[in-house]
């Protein structure tokens, strides 16, 4: 139940952090027309629909937002942003919420997404480009499902569409420096220095 009035749970700092990170200060403009949810291809799989995420943010229900599965299900298709009559960049809000959820350690609902993204970025950090085969094998190991999408893997192999060794670019040093900032997602990966 959403309780309002008296001691409100609103945390203006948090809301403005989301607004800032999303390049927008118009979250409060939303009048709940629902056009974002109407066009969202993944709303059917979300616990809180996109308009409800914005509503929860307006009401300061931070825990509910960061703990929602919806923010990890958003595929970033930008349909909502494109059509929002209030000019709210909802896709970017979702992005910011994912980043903030990670910073707050609230990733239970999105552990597969986060795990995949980490593997992906580790690969980029190590090689400068993503090593698809490595990332997929890593995903299957982490999820303890060695044969997930094995049908696809076999097909890709037979068509020569899966490179089995990583290709490393010359400028990996430059790329790694980009990962050196405070708070970078895979700043200190448990990787071997040599592959």
């Amino acid at each position: 139940m959403i309780l309002l009035g008296g001691k409100s749970s609103t945390e203006p700092d948090f809301i403005s952090a989301v607004a800032r990170a999303s390049g927008h200060a118009t979250l409060l403009h939303c009048y709940q027309c629902g056009k974002c949810t109407a066009g969202c291809p993944l709303a059917f799989g979300m616990d809180h629909k996109p308009n409800q995420i914005i509503r929860l943010l307006q009401l300061g229900r931070i825990k509910q937002v960061l703990g929602s599965r919806a923010i990890w299900i958003c595929a970033g298709c930008w349909t909502c942003t494109t059509r929002c009559p209030c000019g709210i960049d909802i896709a970017q809000v979702m992005d910011s919420l994912r980043v903030l959820a990670r910073n707050e350690g609230e990733t239970v609902q999105g552990k597969d997404v986060v795990s995949f993204n980490e593997l992906f970025l580790q690969s980029v950090r190590r090689n400068g480009r993503v090593f698809e085969f490595g990332v997929f094998m890593g995903r299957n190991l982490r999820r303890r499902k060695p044969f997930l999408d094995a049908d696809l893997g076999r097909f890709m192999l037979t068509r020569g569409k899966l490179r089995l060794t990583a290709e490393r670019i010359k400028g990996t040093k430059e790329v790694r420096r980009l990962f050196s900032r405070q708070g970078a997602p895979v700043r200190n990966p448990k990787e071997r220095t040599k592959e």
Partner: peptide, 24 residues
């Protein structure tokens, strides 16, 4: 010697990387 653009992984994990990787 181009590098990965960071794709969805970068922009949903870190907004700096999301700009920095393509920037190179």
């Amino acid at each position: 010697d181009w590098n990965c653009c960071g794709a969805t992984a970068a922009h949903s994990m870190d907004h700096f990387l999301a700009a920095a990787l393509p920037a190179r």
